[in-house]
Design a protein around this nucleic acid. Structure first.
Length: 259
DNA sequence: AATCAGTGTGCATACAACCC
DNA sequence: GGGTTGTATGCACACTGATT
């Protein structure tokens, strides 16, 4: 077989490097490895952006996992699920077959599941006389087990990233609120200074805040915003000081006149 | 030969994001 | 505000090997 393609009963289906990699990875499951499928699924949901799949694809993965007989995924219990498209569609909230296939392909491409095709391409399991599942054909969840640690660490990273973003947003909001209050005060108190210019700078800074942003996007903006605030505070303090001095001087004058 | 359970893909549509 | 573009979806279709 030439590389790059996998021969199926239905002709040649392109095989990506990622698929090859996840196939190899799936061979390397540590003995005794097991995971609660729903805990792992939640980690996958957290790590979703990093894994490069959509929420709809996860709906399909969710449906797929419902066909795994046990809560604990482990090699001993078998790693192949073999639902028909009809059953899968049913448990994927009635997802249309074509869409189902596309998302299955996405999951394979993302290295979360593997196809294990039967000779005729249908999904089924051979059972022995005792009724136990022998060889099964369908989708293998082996990559999930092989990548469990990686997935969990991606999920943890996502959580910390999100927290950092939240904190950064919070600081940014506080800072911009400070600035607009300070500017308002300056204008109301008619403190001298180029407040129009400051306002304009503030507005352009605000306009640079992306609607959707990462913490990395926001950090430099927060820095600039902080500098602007410091500058404004500085200006105000200087004016207030000189005004106080003026006031004192006029008081002294007043004093002199009175005395 | 018809049917079944799979596979993929082209086309139309809907909707969101982006740009001017 | 309106046009463009990209993505997801659903439908229809073509194809396959096994089975009846």
């Amino acid at each position: 077989m030439e590389s790059g393609y996998v021969t199926t009963p239905f002709g040649r289906r392109p095989m990506s490097l990622g698929m090859l990699a996840s196939q190899q990875l799936a061979e390397t499951i540590e003995p005794g490895m097991k995971r609660s499928k729903w805990k792992l699924f939640r980690a996958i949901c957290e790590a979703r952006p990093a894994l490069g799949v959509t929420d709809r694809a996860l709906t399909v993965l969710d449906a797929l996992l419902t066909f795994y007989p046990d809560d604990e995924i482990s090699e001993e219990k078998g790693l192949i699920v073999f639902p028909s498209n009809a059953q899968l569609s049913l448990r994927a909230r009635g997802m249309t077959p074509a869409t189902l296939r596309r998302h299955l392909a996405v999951l394979v491409e993302a290295g979360l599941i593997l196809r294990k095709d039967s000779p005729n391409g249908k999904r089924y399991a051979r059972r022995d006389r005792a009724g136990a599942v022998g060889e099964a054909f369908g989708f293998s969840v082996a990559p999930l087990l092989a990548r469990a640690a990686e997935i969990e660490s991606l999920a943890a990273q996502t959580v910390t990233d999100r927290e950092l973003l939240r904190v950064t947003r919070e600081r940014l909001t506080l800072c911009r609120r400070d600035i607009s209050k300070l500017i308002m005060t300056a204008l109301e108190e008619e403190i001298s200074g180029d407040w129009e210019g400051i306002s304009a700078m503030f507005r352009t800074l605000l306009a640079r805040i992306p609607r959707v942003a990462t913490a990395e996007d926001l950090a430099p903006l927060l820095d600039e915003m902080g500098l602007l605030r410091a500058e404004i505070v500085n200006m105000l303090e200087r004016r207030i000081k000189t005004q106080k001095i003026d006031a004192n001087e006029s008081q002294i004058e007043h004093h002199k006149q009175n005395s």
